[in-house]
Design a protein around this nucleic acid. Structure first.
Length: 604
RNA sequence: UGCCCGAUGGUGUAACGGUAGCACAGCAGACUCUGAAUCUGUUUGUCGUGGUUCAAAUCCACGUCGGGCAACCA
């Protein structure tokens, strides 16, 4: 999005956490020629706010230490993955790192796969990154770039498996799945554990050549039968799966498991710091064992683990996100109520706000629940500096200024953003008939109410001080109109404009305003932990997570753009939605302004 | 049950043997042509018990509590 040029760069100078400390130590001792991280999502769902934390960590490190961060699709399970997700992941990553770390993004030339070369007399596989480009440059470049894919390495990973067999460190196991699980749980050796290298090679080749049905045979690493760490109990590294792959089509009927593919993918790409979440901690010995068993010529990557983000008042598990989408509880993966990156973006949150949030929450190994208020604060903080102020009335009541001439129109000066003087101003039409916010009038005012009330005065922002003279109701007793008089000398800058009036309210001119659909989003769940104590998250859905209204907007909003952010004064921040058409404005409420009055009103 | 990891105010995080700090939230006030923003003040904390030390959130031991893993998922 376009960024006002004079915005202070709110991004804090240098984040610090235990992983960056490790990287910094490696840099100072020149352990690696260059820091190289990676962000390796599986394309089986949309990226969410938890991934955003990981992206900010991995690209942040690349950025701070002059390194590179590869984007890699961790696509070793074709039955769960889809090209739709590959595409959404790229869009989301580009958006989040745009203008911040996009030049650290490691990609590869379209179709490029690792080549075998000799290093120190050993066969090696390596695929170099292309980096230092902006998204814009990539779009116009003749050389097409794309993410890395674990599936690009299936040939090499297969070779590594063969090498492991040849070293006597892997074997083909014919046990049925249930029995194998049972043996592993009980630390018993597979009866096939001691097959000869020749037989293993033959069987593995035949697995690859489509001679066996799914589930009949697997390749297992030969490590330890009864290791304390279950992941070291002769873990499975290749399985037969007759399924077309979104990248390799029908080429393979065997696919490597995560543990085998991931460390080797890291190695092939020259990754130095393989940063993942805590649940992989127990896999680390296996990660190291595989790489160390293969006698590889280049420095090995190492794995470091951190606690994933758990935000309050939402859910982040892919399976449950899918449920919300499929059961149409939300409108799609980019529903602005969802914690998906595409939903967050559509809601109007900027990438910078999301990055600042990621910085604020830090990185540790302690599993914690992050209060959504921290997230909301990051959004408000960003939007306050960025958003153009506008006047709009969500729930209108009509006001007639009885002492203002009929047919007269004044153009009043309004400031676009008091936080940002160079953002300039605009003209606001004022006339005899206006709309004000329903909540800004009370016939029977509660204590400390300093908005409009019968016989009371209030200031219209940028305009006059008005006094409520009469309340007009229909026969049913519903409020239809307020008749007010204005202090005609009190216009901003006028003789009596300095009068102390406690309340200032927003308004629009009835004859000049434009209608817009506004979608008022709120938290999707009413509870901080929707699934606390095994409760069904659907039982705590917030019934008011979306309210749609037609708002009365000042006319300048006709020129609203998708890139801009708006504050409807005294209400909330809004962004134009994708659904907007020429002549039909649709705004998403990104987040409300803090509302001290709501808190005060609740006390009484 | 085994193995691994963790524990600092309400929440999140810092302090790397030497004054427990910051942010969010809360509360009180100032300012205000946004009850926003801004500013000021403020409540609340080192899981427990021992030990080492002049000195422990930090090192050690034991315990308690919480979490992860035990998929032909990643």
């Amino acid at each position: 999005m376009s960024t006002p040029t004079n915005l202070e760069n709110a991004a804090p100078a240098a984040p610090s956490d235990f992983i960056r400390d490790i990287v910094a130590a490696h840099v100072s001792e020149h352990k690696y020629p260059r820091v190289h991280t990676r962000f390796p999502p599986e394309p089986n769902g949309y990226l969410h706010i938890g991934h955003a934390k990981s992206i900010c960590l991995n690209f942040g490190i690349a950025r701070e230490f002059g390194g590179i961060c590869n984007l890699r699709m961790d696509d070793t399970n074709p039955t769960k993955e889809d090209i739709e997700y590959v595409e959404s992941i790229q869009a989301d990553v580009n958006w989040l790192i745009g203008g911040w770390a996009e030049d650290r993004l490691g990609l590869k030339q379209n179709g490029q796969t690792p080549e075998a070369k000799m290093v120190d007399g050993k066969t090696d596989f390596f695929v170099p990154p292309v980096f230092g480009t902006s998204e814009e440059e990539r779009k116009h470049s003749a050389v097409k770039l794309e993410p890395f894919y674990a599936s690009d390495y299936f040939d090499q990973i297969y070779e590594f498996a063969v090498a492991l067999i040849q070293k006597g460190k892997a074997f083909v196991c014919d046990m049925p799945p249930d029995q194998m699980d049972d043996y592993r749980r009980n630390g018993k050796a597979s009866p096939f554990r001691d097959r000869s290298v020749a037989e293993n090679l033959d069987l593995f080749t035949r697995m690859k050549n489509d001679e066996f049905p799914d589930g009949t045979r697997v390749l297992r690493a030969k490590i330890e039968v009864d290791a304390a760490n279950i992941w070291m109990r002769d873990p499975l590294i290749y399985r037969i799966k007759h399924a077309d792959h979104h990248q390799t089509g029908g080429k393979w009927c065997i696919y490597p498991m995560y543990d085998f593919a991931h460390c080797l993918s890291d190695y092939i790409e020259g990754i130095t710091h393989s940063i993942c979440t805590l649940e992989f901690e127990v896999h680390r010995p296996l990660y190291d064992w595989i790489l160390e068993s293969l006698d590889l010529p280049r420095p090995l990557p190492h794995q470091y683990e951190f606690a994933k983000l758990i935000p309050s008042h939402t859910i982040v598990s892919k399976r449950k996100l899918i449920t919300l989408v499929q059961e149409k509880i939300v409108t799609g993966w980019d529903d602005p109520r969802l914690p998906t990156i595409s939903g967050i973006r559509r809601r109007g949150v900027t990438a910078e706000a999301l990055r600042n949030f990621a910085y604020n929450i830090g990185v540790t190994k302690y599993i914690s629940l992050t209060d959504v208020a921290v997230y909301e604060h990051a959004i408000r903080d960003d939007l306050n500096k960025r958003a153009q102020r506008r006047l709009a009335v969500l729930r209108p009541i009509k006001v007639v200024i009885t002492n203002y001439p009929e047919g007269q129109v004044e153009e009043l000066n309004a400031i676009n953003n008091p936080e940002n003087p160079i953002s300039g101003g605009r003209k606001l039409p004022f006339s005899r008939e206006l709309f004000i916010e329903r909540d800004d009038f009370a016939e029977v005012p509660p204590p400390k109410f300093f908005r409009l009330k019968p016989g009371g005065e209030v200031r219209l922002k940028y305009a006059y001080i008005i006094k409520c003279e009469e309340v007009i109701k229909d026969t049913a007793g519903n409020l239809v109109e307020l008749r007010c008089t204005a202090d005609l000398d009190s216009k901003t800058g006028g003789a009596t404009s300095g009068r102390k009036i406690k309340g200032t309210i927003h308004w629009v001119s009835a004859a000049h305003c434009v209608d817009a659909e506004v979608r008022l989003y709120d938290r999707l769940f009413t509870e901080a932990e929707p699934e606390k104590d095994g409760r069904d998250f659907k039982s705590v859905l917030n019934p008011h997570s979306l309210e749609v209204l037609t708002a009365k907007c000042e006319p300048s909003l006709k020129e609203a753009s998708l890139e801009e952010r708006y504050q409807f004064e005294r209400l909330a921040y809004f962004a134009l939605d994708l659904d907007s058409q020429p002549g039909k404005l649709v705004f998403n409420r990104t987040i409300t302004l803090k509302d001290a009055w709501a808190k005060e009103a609740q006390k009484s």
